[in-house]
Nucleic acid binder design. Sequence first.
DNA 1: ACATCCCGCCAGATC
DNA 2: GATCTGGCGGGATGT
Length: 844
Amino acid sequence: MYNAVKKRWKMTSTLSDSRQLNQKFEAVAHDKEAKRIMGPLSTPTKGSEVAGGGEPWTPTSNLKMLISAASPEIRNREKEKTVSEELENSSQDTEQGEESERLQLSRKEKSLGLLCHKFLARYPDDPNPAVNNDICLDDVAVELNVERRRIYDIMNVLESLNMVSRLAKNRYTWHGRAQLAHTLALLQREGEKHHYNQQIQQIRQRHADDVLEMDGEEKENEDTDLEITLRETVLSETSADAKGASRKDKSLRVMSQKFVMLFLVSSPRVVSLETAAKILIGEDQVVDQDKSKFKTKIRRLYDISNVLSSLKLIQKVHVTELRGRKPAFKWTGPENLSLQGLQVEPSSCPGPLESRSSIDNCTKNLFCSPGTKRGFTRHHSLVKLAKSIQDDRRKISSAPTSPVKITSDSANGRFCTSKMDHLAEICKMQLDQQAVNVQKQSNQKDEEKSSPVPRSMTSGAEACPPTVQLSFAPPPPCCSLVPVLLPHAVYVSHTPVRPRPIARPPPSTAVRSMTFESPRGANTKVSPPSVTITNQRLLHGYEPASPALKRTCLTSLERSPAKIKRIETNSKSLSPKLCQILQARLKDRRGALTSSRASARALHLEPEFNKTPHNNPDTLEHNTELQHFLETEEREEKSQNHTQATPTPQDSNRHTNTETLIPTGYLIPISQQPLLSFKETPTSSGDAHKTPTYIYHTPTAGSIAPSPQEFTPSPLPVHRPTHRVSPNPSILNFTLQNLALIHNTHGATHMAPAAEQPSPIPCTHTLHTSHAHTPLQSHGMIFIKPVSPLTLISLQQPSLTTPKSGSAPQQCFFHTPVSTMVTPTANKSLYIPQRKLDVNSEEH
DNA sequence: ACATCCCGCCAGATC
DNA sequence: GATCTGGCGGGATGT
């Protein structure tokens, strides 16, 4: 397969090369020009790359012309394309010169930025919805003479800004800048929520301090305050990076959105790559993990920057700091972003990210009768839901190493079944409701149309509301699906920002406790100050232990598959060390940790994780010991906290927190009640406050929906200490595994519940409803199988459908990487994003 | 030497 | 199983 892919790529490159060669032949180029003029190449709609030639008749053409004029390189490139195309048609002899040709092109000529320019030149900023704005990656790749891989990079960034949306495999829909302002506004808001500005300041300050004095202690102190916040946020967000979810969490889309957020919240709208990378990665990790990660992040940021630069949203600059001159980017995009439009009725309009396709998918396909065939492939998920569930169960149960999984099994069957049943009903309801919503939306649209955004692309996306609509406000049920832009990452952090209508217990910092190892090693200690800070934050309404954070921890544990593998590879040698570390850590933790353990529940770790321990005998031994140790601790903790054990809402929250620790993707803790409380405002746009539901988008299966409840106060102090230490993913994973082995006591501690929960499937609906029934539900834990996001989605839908049902369930959704959303309430538009897009409008 | 970032391997996700 | 996606990082190129 790979070979095949490679071949394909090679072919592409070959073509490119040949084209390049052709480039030399100016005459040929001219011919091409003529051809272009004659007609669009492959995609008429797109306007083909003719740009260079300049097609006066279309905006795109004009744009192209301008670009070409501005950049000879672009022009040449265009020519090359044309030429190459001709060559292709005529002959393929070019291969010989491929290499040479390739080399001939300067690096700049092959830059992503230039490529993006070319790409953008093909489409109008404000596309006519009536026209077919579909983008075929293959066509684009061919036309632009680049490998598909490069196109993905561009598409990912554009998608993060909702300038395009994925329709189906190999297919995207172009939205242009119509929704850009809205999207940016959303991102800005998200950035504010995440306190990125603080993070930036923190980092800057820290750098300054570092330069001035290398004193370790001081640094430590510094960390306490904002840094902690930053870390939390970052980590939480990073969590995405971390693993679990799928690599998608680390996707360029998420990074791009975060990156943009940094600009939007930073006072001097200048962000250095270093700062951005740190924030995106999390300083701890940066410090701790080799710099490779940092380097990689920087590389990615360059990729993103190139695209954003092409969009003219940022501009490269250099900032001079104490340490010297550093590359940075300055925001040159729109400055005054307002969410006004966004706030429009949530229900009516799909989020900026929403695309016609998504809407269509949701409305037409998804919610159509389950049995119906869906035009969109992704919708298969619905159809396959049952199958997926079963598969998941099977997998889970089969998982040799994870006891937890096994547990989930028994109940799963029923759980799934019931869910399915619900699903059908929900779908039905949803359809009905949808019809109503559509009408409403249409009405609203008229009003809202104030914004020039053409939302619905072609065919009736009746549902497709203008971008403006996205209101953050309580997203309609469907909206939940609607990607408000919050990228996966986003979802993580926002928790902190959200206002909690209900007095909920302070968030627990359980997550932190999970992080055993501080990157800084010895330095990390539990610092009382940090605890204090946490509390303060809580008071302020920040949630230190944001779900995101938790996730982060979890995620970190899981990490990307690739990484996991690496880790596993090394596990043999590392395990002993890890064990030691863990033990030491545990000792340290003993007193403090209370809830952190919960993470342990994570039991159900990915197979990979599971493998590690098992594979390595030594590890097993260590594990046993660790387990013992943990168990003991856990018991102690339980005894201490046992009061909390009772399954009251609060308890649930706690559990949730604990759950958070669980590796994302697998267990998802959802607190229902809180959600319910929030949910009430389906229509209200109140951005800021209602937000009862959060839409957590996780590209990966396991997004955790942090409920307000999640933040329980009581445990905080305990967790805090650990928190400081940055978790070593490997260690965390290891630990989690061990913990997993340890059983959880149901109520007593944090995590246990989740693991025990039988149902692997995250069905919001079920969860909520069941809340009272099963322990699982009560805990809000959901076991999500990373493997089948689709399943999750479908499950979610049901919840969507029953928006008003009032039950909490609906509020939480699990987003698979693909679709995410959670909207508790409303529901006007059903939207199922094929992929999760990122922006959330959640809070309101 | 350092900044950029292209290239394409390779694994997870989808079809 | 084939193909699509896209994370990732080696290493080339530019400054």
